[in-house]
Amino acid sequence: MTAVQISRADGILTVQDMGRPGHLAEGLSRGGAMDRCALLEAAALLGVNAPCAAIEMAGAGGEFSVTAPTRIALTGAPMSATLDQEPLQWNASHLVLPGQKLRIGGARAGVYGYLTPAGGIATDPWLGSRAAHLNIGIGRTLAPGDSLPVGDDPVPERPAHGFVPDARFEGGTFRVIDGPHTALFSDEVLEAFYTTAFRRGARGNRQGIQLDADARFTSAHAKGLASDLIGPGDVQMTGDGVPYILMSECQTVGGYPRIGTVLPSDLPLVAQAAPGVILQPRRISLEEAIATIRSEAELLRDLAGRCAPLVRDPATIRDLLSYQLVSGVTCGDDLERV
């Protein structure tokens, strides 16, 4: 079986897919990729009909090779990438051959980059998913020397494709709907929260991300709340009024008050916010939120329509003169001799 081999790991590398939904009753949150949109983008670039397991690279990538010709997609936070020292376009698919060295550097913007083989990482699934869930000990971070099996490429003849992603790597506005505890906060606190331009705090991981501001957002009615179900996107207020947005590996129950819930479609923007980047909440109604809902199949279809065959820039082709660019060259006197 084809394998992706890791010879260097510079960031926090894990295998991630779309996670394990449906196990809250067993105390297991969904998990999966922090930027789910990046896996949909990879599927569109590779021409496959569903997202597959990828290598999630937090902060930086590393050095990789393959044991057989393998198509890959590079999506998510843009990172410098080279194949045998030749630059590769991000947000594009590429063919990697045995013996070639794929090097992926640090994130130029955002946090999480993704390396997705066309056949998907084919490690043994657990509860229907291959995703590492570090918070509860499912899987582990990847390390030099690891060799990851890759499934069969369903369309190996597909040429390289690229596309321009939606902007989500420099922060911005994220939408929030009211939650079960919104009414516990005074109108003054709610107004302050929604008019604050937060900085993505220094504290954050796959479990949650801190929003940092000079103000605090407390409620006199928050004490003694019974713990209940929580999930990705919930905005919890700690006892001292610091907001945290819960992410893919969050706990399944909690007792901190929740001022609202971030729309799932905006969580990739939150996940990709590097520390210090500005994040601005915007309150919307439930009706507005419902109107934005789209299935992953619809999103994948739209992304596929935005992909186009990749055209290489001649300025980046070092061995350009070795290619047969013209043929049938003559002295130019053909018609005269005829």
Score class of each variant (00 low, 15 high):
156 P>A: 10
112 Y>R: 15
134 L>F: 10
149 P>V: 04
124 D>A: 15
140 R>E: 03
187 D>G: 14
178 D>F: 05
184 L>M: 15
191 E>M: 03
126 W>R: 10
117 P>D: 11
168 R>T: 06
163 F>Y: 15
130 R>V: 01
188 E>M: 08
170 E>M: 11
121 I>L: 08
141 T>I: 10
118 A>Q: 12
110 G>R: 01
189 V>F: 03
177 I>N: 03
146 D>A: 08
183 A>L: 12
170 E>H: 11
191 E>F: 03
161 H>Q: 07
174 F>H: 02
137 G>R: 00
119 G>D: 09
186 S>L: 05
142 L>I: 11
122 A>W: 01
128 G>K: 03
182 T>D: 14
163 F>N: 12
168 R>I: 11
182 T>R: 11
174 F>N: 01
123 T>L: 14
129 S>R: 04
158 R>N: 06
173 T>W: 04
172 G>N: 06
146 D>Y: 14
114 Y>A: 03
177 I>S: 01
125 P>T: 12
149 P>S: 05
164 V>I: 14
113 G>P: 13
165 P>H: 07
184 L>N: 08
126 W>N: 00
144 P>D: 04
110 G>C: 06
132 A>L: 01
153 D>A: 07
165 P>M: 06
129 S>P: 07
157 E>L: 02
143 A>Q: 12
112 Y>A: 09
185 F>D: 11
119 G>C: 09
118 A>P: 00
116 T>V: 15
142 L>A: 07
155 V>S: 11
164 V>E: 15
120 G>K: 05
139 G>M: 01
156 P>G: 12
192 A>F: 02
187 D>H: 06
170 E>F: 13
158 R>E: 06
164 V>L: 14
191 E>Q: 11
111 V>H: 00
141 T>G: 09
111 V>N: 04
164 V>D: 15
157 E>K: 00
134 L>A: 08
172 G>R: 02
117 P>K: 07
190 L>Y: 00
170 E>D: 15
128 G>M: 11
152 D>P: 02
143 A>L: 12
123 T>V: 15
161 H>G: 00
165 P>R: 01
130 R>C: 09
136 I>Q: 05
140 R>L: 02
